[in-house]
Amino acid sequence: MNAIFWPEGYIPGFCDNFASNEVIVAGLCVADIWPLLNTPSLWPTYYENAADIRFYDGKGPELAQDVRFYFTTFGFPVDAQVTEHVAPSADEPARLAWHGCSGEGEKRLDVHHAWLLEDMGGRLRILTQETQNGNPAKELAKTTPDPMINGHQAWLKGLVAAARARKA
């Protein structure tokens, strides 16, 4: 199985908080999931923790390399920029990642959120991982139950359910 590519400063274990979520399901493929993930305006239709989505510089409605966008999640307003965008192909898994930030000074949160979608011979693997730096990340890391793990698992479940509903 493939792994997430991490930029310097956001390597799990060397950051203030890390969340990793994964599902492997039968009956779906990367092509079923990609349009739902790559179109942020669809996120709120299957994930209640994403809202207020908009693009900068006249871009959108789909994500692409270096595209800047905005959304709110976990109560944070996030300015984000796509840092990795590899559409599905037969040769490699689909990859999507963005760097996002929220707040200033002591309340600044910096994140790297990455997705990997991989066809596995009749099964689909969806891996999403996020690393965070800053005081809000340090506080999130101490919270039980873990809001990042639970929130991202809800995102995965919603994504799978939305893809299955589209196929029905």
Rank of each mutant, 00 (worst) to 15 (best):
K59R: 11
R95H: 01
P40C: 12
E139D: 07
D52I: 01
G75S: 07
D57W: 05
E104P: 08
L117A: 08
V86D: 07
P77D: 14
Q81K: 14
A141E: 10
N2G: 02
P61Q: 05
H113A: 02
F69G: 09
Q65I: 04
E48T: 13
D79V: 10
A31H: 14
W115E: 04
N150K: 05
P40E: 06
L63T: 06
A168G: 13
Y70F: 12
G121S: 13
L140A: 08
K157C: 11
N150F: 06
D110E: 14
R125S: 12
T72C: 05
R54Y: 10
F5G: 03
D32F: 03
L109D: 01
K138L: 06
A3R: 08
N133D: 08
K138G: 11
T83Q: 01
P35F: 13
H85G: 01
L37E: 03
R166W: 12
R108C: 05
A114W: 00
A97T: 08
H99F: 11
A114V: 00
Q65Y: 04
L28S: 13
S102R: 09
A165N: 09
K157Y: 05
M120P: 06
N135F: 01
R166S: 05
V78P: 00
N2R: 07
H113S: 01
V67D: 00
W98K: 12
A154K: 08
P147W: 02
D110H: 11
G13T: 07
L159W: 09
E8F: 01
L42C: 08
E92N: 11
I24C: 14
F74T: 10
L109I: 15
G151M: 06
Y10I: 06
T131M: 01
D57A: 07
R95S: 03
E84Q: 04
E104A: 13
R54A: 10
W98Q: 03
A31N: 10
R164M: 15
N17S: 05
I53W: 12
G121C: 10
D52T: 05
N135K: 02
C101K: 14
W115G: 01
F69N: 11
T143F: 01
T73A: 03
V160D: 13
I4A: 09
V30C: 08
F71R: 09
H112C: 07
L127P: 00
Y46L: 02
V30F: 08
G121V: 02
I53Y: 14
G103R: 15
I33P: 09
K138E: 03
E92W: 08
I126R: 07
D52P: 04
A50T: 03
F69A: 06
T128C: 02
F74N: 04
W43G: 03
Q129W: 00
